[in-house]
Write a protein that binds this DNA or RNA. Structure first.
Lengths: 344, 344
DNA sequence: CGCGGCATCCAAAGCGCTTTGGAAATGATT
DNA sequence: AATCATTTCCAAAGCGCTTTGGATGCCGCG
């Protein structure tokens, strides 16, 4: 059942039926009722492709997800919650989400294709690196886009929403320093990512401000998995000068750190303290009620919602100036932190 | 730059240019070269909507993800890995993935719309329940679809790929029984899900075969989060007749169970054994090398790949008979299991 | 009574592609 | 040289929608 058939059956022109269905004023209310009833009865839905071709809007928003044998973004812990939040907002506005999975090497081509093909009206950029080339690319392609995170060294303005990773890690590290910890391990995410750089900067700033030297022996950077947290923490704990506290970039490696601590017959929050960044991942919540880990918390799902809203606004008015938001993480105190143990 | 402009510039008809680009034989090889070069030079990509409108194929595959305030599928641990695998295969075949996020109540409508609008050429059904209504719906809508999992009580044939959950849990429970455990807790996923029912059936079958009574006091069912595993295990461990072993439906609650065991100053694999189902989630791997948990393992990413392949085959030949695959999980032995502790 | 204004509807022209049904040119065959 | 098959190309008709630019009829008003 298409528009022509429907209009013939109603004895109306396609114009009128289309207008009736799309809520235009120049159609008699009685006629509109009749049209809507008929459309309902035949379960009529306008063809999205025809509609898109006529209007020039695809009503789809693109997310490009690079993958490789080693790692990929979709398996990044925070990704699924982010798109969950974004997807909600898309749905409210009649948009669908287009996910394009591509090899790392083909990423640029994927952006180009999606835009040139006209498959999407806007795009979200995930996991920006420093000086991320995708920002310039999308500007060149002249399509609305929104960055989840920030890209250091990109000077032209662009739309982004980021959490203030540096101040979050600065504060969290200060919190440990205030508890008397002087040797604090950093178990960071992959420092290809801009946010990981910022977290390290916050960590280092806090140490430096107290006159504690940066020691790369107790600093790691990698994809944020549980075994990574475990092995990194094990190495440090069994070293000559083990840390008394850890800063972790996500709750996932933090779970590994916990396992490492307990495997050394030490107790979390007493012998060794742990603070992590908590993205409030829905299936990996930081406890119910009292937090498991003392953490810098910021909901990635909320970020997804907000990015989607702002992107849709940008699509609606592409001439609007770029907007940016910088969210502060909140520091929640759980049972994973305590005073530094007395030295022997 | 569209087809007309390109063809005018080349002094050729749209027909010839289109055919040259799409690899049809009735075009001179020299001409084809010239066309391809020009297309490349102008960075020309045919409009997807126009193409879809003309061919009737959207080259998109739909995934409907219901969400609610409580839980949603996208945040389900296994989901992101599944779509990661599926997305790879889609990309290889020129398909894109369309994700539609909808309220639980609107799920049926979402399927209807996506199909009627012509936005998708096929669909994947996630997380089937018993007697899942979506199967009948998609048959009525007459669109190729593929189910990840199975739906008990649906008698008409349909495409699916499932892991033999029952036999996996049967074998795993037998493994614990062989180690002398007689009181084994079950920390299952939500039993709205078909697979959770099957896992429980496997667990119960193993117990019954040894003449051990089913005791619902040590059986739980819920969304598979870490805190759920923790609190469920805590309750059981502090009860009058605590289990000496646990079966968990995923590695995520298993991590919670581990935390619960250690919070009771007990040791995993010595005082209390744990076996979980391991979906081989990429950022939550079951250790590196030696498994953390003894587990029934089956890669959900591989399942995603395979579902995508089979769905694409079905789209290519919609008259083909439904296919189904039932994968066996492998039982991998880690450090989380050991002989039942001697009774006092 | 004639005219402007309003409400309601419609014919037709796109949107950018694919594909059908030839046409023209070329080469091979008799 | 005439015929026929091939190769190579093209004009034009869709695909199903939106939207422009009227047309029609009806009303009130001077």
């Amino acid at each position: 059942m298409n528009l022509r058939q429907l209009s013939e059956e109603l004895g109306l022109s396609q114009t009128t039926v289309s207008r009736a269905l799309n809520g235009y004023p120049e159609v008699n209310e009685a006629t509109r009722q009749r049209v809507q009833a008929a459309a309902e009865a035949h379960n009529y839905r306008p063809s999205q492709q025809a509609k898109s071709l006529a209007t020039g809007k695809s009503m789809q928003i693109g997310h490009v997800i690079p993958f490789s044998a080693q790692h990929d973004m979709v398996s990044n812990v925070v990704f699924s919650d982010f798109i969950g939040g974004a997807g909600e907002v898309y749905a409210q506005h009649g948009y669908d989400m287009l996910l394009s999975m591509v090899n790392f090497d083909d990423e640029e081509r994927a952006y180009r294709e999606l835009v040139r093909k006209g498959s999407v009206d806007g795009m979200i950029v995930h996991g920006p690196t420093q000086d991320d080339p995708r920002i310039a690319l999308l500007k060149e392609l002249d399509i609305p886009f929104f960055v989840h995170g920030r890209s250091t060294h990109v000077t032209t303005p662009y739309n982004y929403l980021d959490v203030n990773s540096k101040s979050a890690f600065r504060r969290a590290t200060d919190f440990l320093l205030d508890l008397g910890h002087e040797r604090i391990g950093l178990i960071n995410g992959s420092e290809r990512m801009d946010f990981a750089q910022r977290r390290r900067a916050g960590y280092e700033a806090a140490l430096t401000a107290r006159g504690i030297a940066i020691d790369t022996d107790i600093m790691r950077s990698n994809e944020m998995t549980e075994p990574y947290g475990f092995s990194a923490a094990c190495e440090m704990l069994t070293s000559e000068n083990p840390p008394t506290a850890f800063m972790a970039s996500s709750i996932v490696p933090a779970l590994g750190i916990r396992r490492a601590i307990e495997s050394q017959n030490l107790t979390v929050g007493r012998d060794v303290s742990v603070i992590c960044f908590d993205d409030a991942i829905s299936y990996m919540p930081n406890g119910e009620g009292e937090p498991i880990f003392t953490a810098a918390r910021s909901s990635v799902r909320d970020a997804g919602r907000r990015c989607a809203e702002l992107l849709i606004a940008q699509i609606a008015d592409p001439t609007a100036d770029p907007v940016s938001e910088l969210w502060d993480a909140e520091l929640v105190v759980g049972r994973s932190t305590g005073p530094a143990p007395k030295k022997d």
